[in-house]
Design a protein around this nucleic acid. Structure first.
Length: 484
RNA sequence: GGGCCGGUAGCUCAGUGGUAGAGCAUCUGACUUUUAAUCAGGUGGUCGUAGGUUCGAUCCCUACCCGGCUCACCA
């Protein structure tokens, strides 16, 4: 028998022993009086004498992170919401049954403790236990306490272990939630309303990408997972929802890399009667405030660089080529300019920067520049070589939109799988008249990377897409050890 | 998909063409304020998988699987 099987067997056995003591091996409800982070917040400054005088009673719950047993007394650290507090259990201070329970505990078990606060001889704020409650059993071993979980693959596949053993990882996802909260708050404050549009679409559009295909049984039709919500959001602008936004998943059936996950979170927002310059100003405000809300500063440390989200420069694509690709023909247009930009400029864009005036060839949904029809009123935001935002003055002329779709269809016939499909329903919507509007998309995962100093998009997505892991086998082991 | 690096005990990692190692965890014993608790003793391994070379392979070779980085594609 392997060690792991042996441990599993031991712990199942121990579960029964705990039950025999009169505890429920899997408890139900435990009303704690304070959380562990709150304990640290409120009592860290108190001296041992003050605590002794007050004798603060409390009930806490958490997962056992460490145990130190010394015969007739011992210590444990309880972990709750990323914070730990020490518990002191002595044989003559708790019921005999509870002390026996303490001796049965394994690292990773979840318990409740009733007691009072004190400081140990070495000064550590601790809970002097008077009563223990058993709440949940771990059957498998926790990651090693000193090094934590180092195996990147396990961190992604079993994120719960990562969250338990790595406070830094937990913090990334707390910050991600703060970022999304910040974006919502800022948009709401400007009169935007949040909407949800279909993920399952008959025609995919709003971006250049290959889709995932699925099938609806009752309707017996193929459906695509959306590659962008863009066209639906603009239908809503036609309908008079003048300021709308959506924060949700897009799906693109393409490569996976440190900055690409097949499903990713996009913020898209549309504002009627605005144009791309209004969106530029808005972007700068949103990004600056988001950086402050998440990190406390508009200047953010990323991979050794200080990225300043409070001061975003604006360059046309041609100006960017002129600056970063000297010797190249910066006055180029069309695909030539795009290639110059992609091959020479993008890699040099470290500081957050707005690049505007994109060639019409790659901008089928953006309005042309009145002064130069080779270009569109479109910009993208770059930071640390990554595109994090994309915005433009929305094309609202149905005739022109039809021509753009026709242009995309030609590209598709020449083999461009990512060229836009014809979306007649969208053209019909535009034919009812869409107010002029500015629209923008911001990649929430990438922005999270930048604001949390993470190198890989997998580190800011709780369950990144991985290849299947193969046989796990725990069900068979449990089946074999099931006494019933 | 191409290139490079990695996969050894539950975890973190050493290591060698000739009987597979450490620390933590686990088990037994001692210990009523410890701090990676300590001390003594024990258990635990298809060395990623499958072939090949060899008297002998965890080690060398080939293919494959999984992961990371990178290039291509993309946001």
């Amino acid at each position: 028998m392997s060690l792991e099987d042996d441990l599993l067997k031991q712990r199942l056995e121990r579960t029964r022993e705990i039950e025999a003591l009169g505890f429920q091996p899997y408890g139900r409800r435990f009303d704690y009086s304070i959380t562990i982070p709150e304990i640290l917040e409120r009592y860290s400054a108190k001296t041992g004498e003050e605590l002794e005088a007050e004798r603060v009673p409390l009930r806490i719950a958490g997962r056992i992170a460490t145990v130190r047993r010394m015969g007739k007394a011992g210590f444990a650290h309880l972990l709750q919401n990323g914070a730990k507090v020490q518990v002191y259990i002595r044989k003559d201070a708790v019921p005999a049954r509870d002390y026996q329970l303490y001796e049965y505990l394994d690292l990773g078990d979840i318990i409740g403790v009733e007691g009072y606060l004190f400081r140990t001889r070495t000064g550590e704020l601790s809970v002097h236990a008077e009563k223990l409650e058993f709440l949940s059993k771990t059957l498998l071993s926790m990651p090693e306490k000193w090094h934590g979980l180092e195996d990147i693959e396990i961190r992604y596949r079993q994120r719960y272990l990562d969250l338990i053993s790595s406070p830094e990882s937990r913090e990334v996802f707390v910050k991600r939630a703060k970022l999304i909260g910040s974006l919502r708050r800022q948009l709401e404050a400007r009169g935007y309303i949040e909407v949800e549009t279909p993920m399952l679409q008959r025609i995919y559009g709003g971006a250049a990408a290959r889709p995932f295909v699925t099938h609806h049984n009752t309707l017996d039709i193929p459906l695509y997972l959306r590659i962008a919500p863009e066209l639906n959001l603009k239908r809503l602008v036609v309908g008079g929802l003048e300021r709308v936004y959506e924060i949700n998943r897009n799906f693109r059936n393409e490569g996976i890399s440190f900055k690409h996950n097949p499903e990713f979170t996009m913020l898209e927002f549309y504002q009627a009667y605005a144009d791309f310059e209004v969106m530029m100003d808005l972007s700068c405000e949103l990004l600056k405030q988001a950086a402050i809300d998440v990190t406390g500063s508009a200047v953010v440390e990323y991979q050794g660089e200080a990225l300043d989200f409070g001061n975003i420069e604006r360059l046309t694509m041609q100006q960017a080529v002129k600056r970063h690709a000297p010797g190249e023909n910066w006055q180029a247009a069309g695909m030539d300019l795009v290639h110059l930009f992609e091959h020479h400029v993008e890699e040099k864009l470290i500081q957050p920067v707005i690049i505007y005036d994109f060639p019409v060839e790659i901008s089928p949904l953006a309005m042309r520049k009145p002064s130069d029809p080779r270009f569109t009123d479109r910009f993208e935001i770059f930071a640390y070589r990554m595109e994090i935002g994309n915005a433009f003055t929305e094309l609202n002329d149905p005739q022109e939109q039809r021509r753009r779709f026709d242009m995309q269809l030609e590209m598709r016939e020449k083999g461009d799988e990512e060229a836009h499909q014809m979306d007649e329903d969208y053209i019909r919507a535009l034919s009812y008249g869409m107010p002029p509007a500015g629209g923008e998309g911001i990649g929430v995962d990438r922005l999270t990377m930048l604001l949390t100093n993470q190198r890989s998009i997998r580190d800011v997505i709780l369950f990144p897409q991985l290849r299947p892991e193969g046989e796990i086998g725990i069900a068979a082991k449990l089946r074999e050890l099931d006494p019933t």
